[in-house]
Structures are given as C-alpha cells and as structure tokens.
C-alpha cells in the first residue's frame, strides 16, 4: 500500500470504499468513466455508484441500456482507444450474457495482435448468495473468468482492499475483473483516505497460525476468521489466508504457509467442483509443498446445484462457519 495524501483512516462500508475509489479515479484521470445499468440517478442496484453522477455528470457516469453484451463490448472498444472504463454488471450472473466480449475480445485482443495493444478495462461484478435472490442472481462465477488467460480476477474481502484493488485495477493496463460479494457491501472497516493500491496477485495472511492453512476467498475469509478464533479452544492454531486474487494466484504465500502447517483447507463460495479450491489444491499438490502435507487437502465449496431460494436451503449450499470449524478439527486431529 502506498498512501500518499490524506493518510487518515476512517470507517467506511465496503460499498462506500468502492465508491470512494471510483471517485478518486474519476477525479484524477479524465479518461476514466463509469458504465453500467442504472448506475446514474438510481445509484446502482446496490447503491455503489451512489451520487457520483451528480459530481461527474452523465457523460462520465453512463447509464447503458440493458445490453450486457453490447455494453461490455463498448467498454472493450473504449478501453482500446484511450478511455479507462469501469463497467458495472448489475449482477455477476449477467456476465453470461457478455461472455463473448469478456472472454473472446477483452482477454485476447492484446495477444491476437501480438502485444501491440492493451485493454485497460475494469469490470465489477456484484456476486454471491445470501440475499434470497435465487439461482440467476446469486452465483459466484470467478472461476469461470479465472480460467481465461488475459484476464485478472480479484475478490476483495474488506473495505480497505475493495478500494485498494479497484484503484490497482484502474492503474492496470490489462482487463481486471472484480468480484464483490453483495453481503459485504454493508460491512464496515478501516479505510485509509486518499489514493493507495492493493497489489493484484498478492494474498494476505489475515491470521498467523501453525496447525492448518485455511485459504479463503471473499466473504469466506470472515467465516474462516471466526472459525479460527473458535478453534483456539481446541488448541488449534489456524492460519487464514485471504487469497484476494484468483488470477494470477499468489503461489508463494499459499505454498509457504502449507510448508509450515502441513494442512490445507480451501474455502470458497463458487461451486466446489472445478472451482478456485481445485486450483489451489492442485497448485500445492504439484509443488514442493506437497512433501509437507500431513493430511489430505480439504475443499469446502458450493454445492453441486444452483443457489436455491429458501433461506435454509440457500445457507446449506455454501460453506458456513461450522463447516470450516469441523473441517479444521478433523484435519488437525488426523480424522480425515
């Protein structure tokens, strides 16, 4: 982090921190503009852009028609020709409508043209379950995009990182996809003022421990932290890593932690199979850290079904704190 001016730290919500980051980016660079559905006077479906349109006008806080494919493509074209768009999807699920532009265009243009162009594009995806919005408004699809060379994919878990990663994304010459968990928008946290960046591709060790490494993403970081505190009663000292970036993944932080603890639990909300945890597990299994594993790797991920509506069902299909607790106990006590 490189705080420059206004180093004071305030308590802001995750959504406010993102808004502040966009405000700073708009203020600092006239080529930055916001695009998305209902981000102007409405303030965004989750009130993240808020009243920025009043400060910067409709030319720089642009409402788009409900045209995810077209809108995403306009953002790609604008990014190729001198603008730095921050494109908001109303729900991450709608990325499916725009996959062509994200995957075939944004991610590949630079490569296809032999490195002669860049696509400085930021896309924001409100993601995750827990809002009772059911199957088409609750997904965690970071692994889909994490599978695409050419994209960078981040998942901030705190207000501080939400701001720092967004400002890092704006400064990045390549397309950066930011997955924001909807349940985190209201979460408060300490946020430094002014401009700073959180490095893309660098995980954060949220809690140092020696018995088991818990690599978590997004909202799961908080569940993992809660579990880690409770595990103290069992004399289990868990290390919690906030992955923060899905692509490029921070090998060093994860591997050195596993070398230390010998045990790995991956916790993520996306569907377990072929998800982020599969990549983390494989990364460890393929590395020299394998030789330090003293128990099978445990993945806690989303169930093999769409997100259901009923609140109890909805809770049951994504990992919860007690699941992490039980997994940690099992793995440390040598029961798995």
């Amino acid at each position: 982090m490189n705080a420059q001016n206004e180093p004071e730290i305030r308590e802001l919500s995750y959504a406010e921190a993102i808004r502040e980051a966009m405000d700073i980016a708009l203020e600092a660079d006239p080529s930055v503009l916001l695009m998305g559905e209902d981000i102007g006077v409405y303030g965004g479906a989750f009130q993240v852009t808020g009243d920025l349109v009043e400060k910067y006008g409709t030319d720089r806080v642009m409402d788009t028609p409900i045209s995810e494919l077209g809108g995403a493509g306009v953002a790609v074209g604008a990014a190729l020709t001198g603008l730095k768009p921050i494109f908001e999807f109303q729900f991450s699920d709608f990325a499916a409508l725009a996959m062509e532009q994200i995957v075939n265009q944004a991610a590949k243009v630079r490569f296809m043209l032999g490195g002669s162009v860049s696509v400085p594009l930021v896309m924001r995806f409100p993601a995750g379950s827990g809002t009772g919005a059911a199957a088409q408004h609750s997904q965690s699809i970071e692994a889909w995009l994490g599978h695409v060379p050419g994209l960078k994919v981040v998942q901030p878990s705190t207000p501080e990182d939400a701001k720092g990663l967004l400002l890092a994304a704006v400064a990045d010459p390549d397309p950066v996809m930011i997955f924001e968990h909807k349940l985190l928008y209201k979460m408060k946290g300490q946020v430094p003022g002014g401009h700073y960046t959180t490095p893309i591709g660098k995980a954060a060790i949220r809690r140092v421990g020696k018995d088991v490494t818990i690599v978590a993403t997004s909202i799961m970081v908080h569940k993992a932290m809660e579990a880690a505190e409770q595990l103290r009663a069992d004399d289990i000292d868990a290390e919690v890593i906030d992955l923060r970036t899905v692509r490029p993944m921070d090998r060093d932080t994860v591997l050195s932690s596993v070398r230390k603890t010998g045990r790995l639990i991956c916790v993520y909300e996306g569907v377990k199979t072929l998800g982020v945890g599969a990549e983390i597990s494989a990364m460890v299994a393929e590395s020299d850290a394998f030789d330090f594993l003293d128990a099978p790797i445990v993945r806690l991920g989303g169930a093999e079904c769409p997100i259901p509506y009923n609140p109890e069902l909805e809770k049951a299909v994504v990992p919860q704190m007690p699941d992490i607790l039980a997994a940690a106990r099992d793995i440390v006590k040598g029961r798995v």
């Binding site: 394998f290 030789d291 003293d294």
Partner: peptide, 11 residues
C-alpha cells in the same frame, strides 16, 4: 510398498 503415509511423513 502400499504403506499409507502422508507426504510430510514420507519426507
């Protein structure tokens, strides 16, 4: 040969 052992134990 079929000894059940963790990678860490083997190392």
């Amino acid at each position: 040969e079929g000894i059940r052992a963790t990678p860490a134990a083997r190392r």
